[in-house]
Design a binder for these strands. Structure first.
Lengths: 141, 141
DNA sequence: ATCCCTGCAAAGCCTTTGCAATGCA
DNA sequence: TGCATTGCAAAGGCTTTGCAGGGAT
C-alpha cells in the first residue's frame, strides 16, 4: 500500500471524510521530496484541480498535523514548512539559500532531564540548526 | 554597568547610533523577565514614548539579533519571541497556555556529528520542546 | 439525508517598506 | 554637516474566517 493510501486510510479511520481534494493534497505531500510550504502544495495541487482553494489546503494540512502524521516546521522564514518524513531527525537550514536538510540526531541525547522540575508532559521536540551550506559559505579566511 | 548600558555600548562599538528610542527598546527587553514579542516591546515602550513607531522597534530588534545579543524564537505561534538570556538553553512551550520556559540542556549532546557529510558551517542551534504544563495537562487517565 | 467539506472572497495579523523630516556623531 | 535613524502610513505575505452550496458516507 502506498504512502498516499496509508494516509488516506488513517484519515478515514479517524472518522474524517476522504475527498478528492484531500487525496490530491496528500499526493502532493508525498511527491515532494522535502519540506514544501502550504503555498507550494497549493500551487502543485492547482495544476490538476484549478478550483482548489486556500482554505482546503490549509485545513487539510492542519488536520494532518493534528493527526501527528505531518510535522509543521516554523523556521522563521515567514512561512511554515511541512515534513512528512518519519523517524526522528533534526533540520539544518542554510541562512544563505534557505535550503533545508534533514540530519539524524540522537533523540536520547536531547531528552530533557527528568530531574528538571518543569513538570511538563513533552509531546514533541524540534531541533533546528542554522548555518551556511557549502555553496553559501561566506568568504572568510 | 547595567545590562542596558552594556548593550548600548555594544551598539556604539559597532558604529551604530545610540538614540533614545533604541535605549528604551533595550530597556524594555531587559525589563521583561522572559520572551516578549515585538508587539509587547512596542506596547511597553509606547507608554513612555507615544510616538514610537513599529519600524523602529522592528529595526532595532533585527539589529540586536544581527549583533548576536538577542535570540529570535519562532515557535509557530504566529509571532516571534525575543530572548535576551545568555547561555545555552532549550525552550519548553505549553500547547495549552502558550507559556514559554527555559530549560537547561547539554549542548555537547546535541552537537551534530562531524561525520555527517552535510558540510554546513553551523551558526546556531535551537531546541524546542512542546507539551503541556502541569496546569494545562489534558484530562487523561 | 446528514452535516462535513469546499470554494470564494475578504479579513486578520505580524512584519516590512518608502519617503520625507529629524537628530546623533 | 552628513547620513543613519525615525515616524507615518500603507503595502505585503501568509494564514484564517464566514458563509452558502455541494458531496461523502
Amino acid at each position: 500500500m502506498s504512502s498516499v493510501d496509508r494516509l488516506c486510510e488513517q484519515l478515514k479511520a479517524q472518522g474524517r471524510r476522504l475527498t478528492p481534494q484531500r487525496r490530491a493534497i496528500i499526493q502532493a505531500l508525498c511527491d515532494y521530496d522535502s519540506h514544501p510550504t502550504a503555498e507550494q502544495i497549493f500551487a502543485r495541487v492547482r495544476q490538476d484541480m484549478p478550483d482548489m482553494s486556500h482554505a482546503t489546503v490549509y485545513n487539510t494540512l492542519r488536520e494532518l498535523v493534528e493527526m501527528n502524521v505531518l510535522r509543521e516546521l516554523d523556521l522563521g522564514l515567514g512561512e511554515r514548512h511541512y515534513d512528512l518524513h518519519e523517524g526522528d531527525h533534526a533540520h539544518l537550514i542554510c541562512l544563505g539559500c534557505g535550503r533545508i536538510e534533514d540530519v539524524p540526531y540522537d533523540k536520547e541525547a536531547v531528552k530533557l532531564s527528568s530531574r528538571h522540575p518543569h513538570g511538563f508532559r513533552i509531546v514533541d521536540c524540534n531541533v533546528i540548526f542554522r548555518g551556511y551550506c557549502p555553496d553559501c559559505m561566506p568568504q572568510e579566511k
